[in-house]
Design a protein around this nucleic acid. Structure first.
Lengths: 209, 209, 209, 209
DNA sequence: AATGAATGAGAGTTCATTCAT
DNA sequence: CATGAATGAACTCTCATTCAT
């Protein structure tokens, strides 16, 4: 029962319906992880879910809604996991360390999901050709890092950052984390803890006064 | 005059034929830059090149060969530009700085081409579902950075790196550079020199003893 | 309680069941009036009726039966309304006038229903591709007009008609009435009385001795 | 080579391309005549044309364009045939007679095409649910009849008509002609000449002073 | 008596590829 | 050399129908 069929808002989706959608989302993630964004057709997703293609159309208005749901579920789970850990820290330096560590741990535990969202981030476009999640990504993912940097600078723990240089720093940190996801999916035999320690080292050095 | 039509090796391609292929490659880059990998059909490429789709099939055995040619031309141009500059440096520290600077300059001057190759790197897959350029990318792009790091370590200029940690460092540097390309394509108003300086600062701090 | 579920004849349909079917028929008419025959899916009908698609399948053996029911209810209501009025007239001329007037009045009062039946008449086909209601339409709708014409001819009030020319006359009259329905649905600002008078004028002139 | 692929205007379509489109239009007409509007899928059309569905998509941007082409070709042929005959007449009475006769002759010679256009007229809708050809039909088909009526009235040959009553008259005449097409398609054994004479009789009586 | 879930066929459309000219 | 034409498979999406609950 897609939004199209139920024009009321999402809150009215039944518990069972939510669960069914989540199951399909799970298979969609699986499919993207296995075949990549451009080969992940509804047919392939349905095949993995062992249902007919029609089932997906029944639960989602269209493919776009399904793909967006992947991102929505991701952001919710990601924030629920990382934000409390980061906010529990006292100093910006600790916050940065925990940001990196919690993110890598989250990635490790949700490899396929994170990979799928990265694929969507770089491939899913709106009708006018623009990347669908560009803006959301900036606001949800980059801003928190920039805030930590600003805080550390104000407290005199981090070096000076202009608005521009803070953005470069944030991008570099985020790219390093996403890069770990890609490596994981390639079956590189990386140890999370090790990778985590390395990134912490790199960015503590890069930010300290 | 595709490989299919001329089963002899590439050296036999006439000068004119090479030029024609290069022109088509140029439009393919243009198309990927504009529409992204998954919307870049042969039809769209042909449209931009103002030729029929058949022309592309005539000059390339199939779509894959065309896309691979984009990467081949990229690697040649990239190496021709960056390698001499890097090798002209005396110390590993200078080499790292010039690696970053020359790469960002190259990206700036070849935005669309670099962007296209990044798209291919994360999307183009072989029949068995594996990323087509994964191995080449490691050997061509990551190894040189790792070599600089090893050299700097041996000379006592850089801190200690294990094989694993050097790989993490190299990946982080490379991801930072590719991230600049993405930002450029998004029309972020970044200044190359400024971005370059920031990355140099970050990675000099991250590598120094 | 479809025919399929109750293989006995229709007379056994309970009062409640009949009412339920009538409600669904009403929404089917609504839907055809709004979207036209080819867009009037069971889903759209169910949506307007605020029930699930399954309900329709429960009460009707299949879509065809539902659509036929629209026509059945129409013919019953149409005959109940027009026949007494026409038969109350003494002369064929009066009968023809009242035929036109009562039909236009009926159309005006049942715009959507009449429109839906016209849509069905020209679109609903049997498995072998023939129009489903062609024969019924001839016998139920055209014959009465032809009878009036024959009567008027026998009484020396109307001009001579052969079997063929009476059929042409009947068709022309009927097409004029159906045409009024179409115009009404297009929101043409026609006055029923005016349209009625015009048609009476036209066909009194066309039939008189 | 559809309009979509060739964004230049229609005048640039080659002679061969025009011919090919016309052939496909011919099969589309055939299909609508046989199956009716709502069963006339691209698959059925392609089947009759003995080509793949892709061929139709190659020559027409979409199904809508193909269907519109049916109407375009119809209007051109219809006007080319009927207009000169009608304009050659001296009196409005003769014009009306020739209008009916030439239209019925045209219908007889182009049964399937005319039938297809009638189907499109009553079924093809725009995205907002309105009948696609309603306005064109009024202007192209009804107006000329109204003009004849007005002329006849001014010359004192026809009875008085208000704007509204002229429209009713025009609609009635047109519906009678379209009705003939439907009868022909039903294989009714009507003689064109006879049907023609009947309609002329009806409408000469209906219009005369 | 009704529903929500699922199906599978078929719709229109896109696209890489082939090939006669 | 290049084209226009055609193919056929795969795509997303719609829909009438079935059925367990």
């Amino acid at each position: 029962m897609s939004i199209k069929n139920k024009p009321t808002n999402q809150k009215e989706l039944s518990f069972i319906e939510k669960a069914r959608r989540s199951q399909i989302v799970e298979y969609a993630i699986e499919t993207i992880a296995e075949l990549g964004y451009s080969q992940a057709s509804l047919g392939q997703i349905a095949k993995r879910a062992k249902v007919s293609k029609g089932v997906i159309s029944y639960h989602f208005a269209n493919k776009e809604e399904l793909l967006e749901q992947i991102a929505i579920e991701y952001y919710l789970a990601w924030q629920a996991y990382t934000t409390p850990l980061i906010e529990a820290q006292k100093s910006p330096k600790e916050m940065l360390r925990v940001y990196i560590e919690s993110n890598l741990k989250f990635v490790y535990k949700n490899q396929k999901h994170v990979f799928a969202v990265i694929e969507l981030g770089s491939n899913l476009r709106t009708a006018d050709g623009k990347l669908r999640f560009a803006k959301e990504h900036d606001e949800t993912v980059l801003l928190p890092i920039e805030n930590i940097l600003t805080l550390g600078m104000q407290e005199g723990i981090f070096r000076e950052f202009t608005k521009q240089s803070a953005r470069v720093m944030a991008l570099t940190i985020r790219n390093a984390i996403d890069g770990f996801t890609i490596e994981l999916m390639r079956n590189s035999q990386f140890d999370v803890q090790e990778y985590s320690n390395e990134l912490v080292t790199i960015f503590e050095r890069a930010t300290k006064k």
